[in-house]
């Protein structure tokens, strides 16, 4: 599965530019699903029909990652940029970005070595090695993603875009491994989550699920002097109870707990004091959908080096697979 993760995280796909990730996923899952389509926002929606008697489930993992977008190229060829999603300013200076056309840029700061403070966004620029707008390989409107290779630390995996390619990997792996299921499962690889869970809004409207589950990363509280949070790397996937965007339907939460306990999968319960996931949008679709979220604990979220625990990932695959194979017994 590590090879799948590596392939996914190293593919270029900032929010709104998910085409390459989508093509990669489409190719991998085709033999395992009954039908698939791409909607107006670029969500990939694949259906695997069940044996009957189950529910219509929507499983969502988002394809997009955070990035930057060029808004201006000055006379000397330096590019100014805007943010695509929740990029953190502390991670920028000296970092590299990769554009869709293959161009690479270095992020510079007007006050480099002159100030000890945190940069203001307006003080940052991208140096693509150009000397004027004419010889710049990028144009206004071009979108860049962090450039950072995948690293296998053995127990732990590090890369940019773990948020949420690791979720995509978990969903793909569960799809490939799953046995017979009573449920019609819609596997939705969503677009533009980082811009406000936009892909999930429209895909949930189309799918009309009876139950929805997002698979996404969550924060942890186990690094030195971290803000207290009862989620750690290596203690299993997390079952979300609440985040800033939603309260998980208690019946969905209980279903996830019951399956985890029955299968002996270690898990953690997650209360996140900020953030939100696609589950929020699924819950609010049409007349309402019971929705939950299976979270993969992740350190340094929204930095170019997001770290997950491989056992947590495998636990998430198993839990998702067992959920898909089971019959959600609660009423909706």
């Amino acid at each position: 599965m590590k090879e799948l993760v590596k392939q996914l995280v190293e593919t270029y796909g900032p929010a709104g530019q998910e085409g390459r990730v989508r093509a990669l996923i489409e190719g991998i899952i085709r033999p395992y699903v009954d039908a698939s389509r791409v909607d107006a926002l670029g969500n990939l929606i694949a259906l695997k029909r069940g044996s009957g008697g189950g529910k219509r489930l929507m499983i969502a993992a988002h394809m997009d990652e955070i990035g930057v977008v060029v808004t201006h190229i000055d006379k000397k060829g330096f590019a100014r940029f805007g943010r695509v999603g929740g990029v953190q300013v502390q991670t920028m200076v000296g970092g590299r970005v990769l554009f869709g056309n293959g161009a690479v840029g270095v992020i510079g700061w007007e006050k480099w070595l002159q100030s000890r403070g945190v940069p203001a966004w307006e003080e940052l620029f991208i140096d693509v090695g150009a000397t004027s707008p004419d010889d710049s390989p990028v144009r206004v409107g071009d979108v860049g993603a962090f450039l950072r290779p995948f690293v296998d630390l053995g127990k732990r995996l590090v890369s940019k875009a773990m948020d949420d390619r690791i979720g995509c990997a978990v969903v793909i792996q569960a799809l490939m491994e799953m046995k017979e299921s009573p449920n019609d499962v819609y596997f939705v690889f969503t677009a533009q989550e980082e811009l406000g869970t936009r892909g999930a809004v429209v895909s949930a409207f189309g799918v009309e699920p009876e139950v929805g589950i997002a698979v996404d990363v969550t924060h942890i509280g186990d690094t030195p002097e971290a803000r207290p949070m009862a989620v750690s790397l290596g203690k299993g996937p997390a079952i979300k109870v609440m985040d800033a965007g939603m309260v998980v339907n208690p019946a969905v939460k209980q279903w996830m707990i019951d399956v985890a306990e029955k299968e002996g999968i270690p898990y953690q319960l997650e209360v996140l004091e900020f953030g939100g996931t696609d589950a929020r949008s699924i819950q609010l679709s049409k007349a309402g959908v019971p929705a939950g979220c299976l979270s993969i604990p992740c350190r340094y979220v929204h930095s170019p080096s997001e770290m997950v625990d491989y056992e947590d990932v495998q636990g998430a695959v198993k839990l998702l697979r067992k959920l898909l194979e089971s019959s959600p017994s609660f009423s909706s």
Binding site: G245, V247, L284, A287, G288
Partner: peptide, 16 residues
């Protein structure tokens, strides 16, 4: 329900 969590109940209730 869930007005205090972002007007959730009214959103889906009115739709239904």
């Amino acid at each position: 329900v869930q007005e205090e969590k972002g007007l959730k109940g009214a959103t889906v209730g009115a739709y239904g």
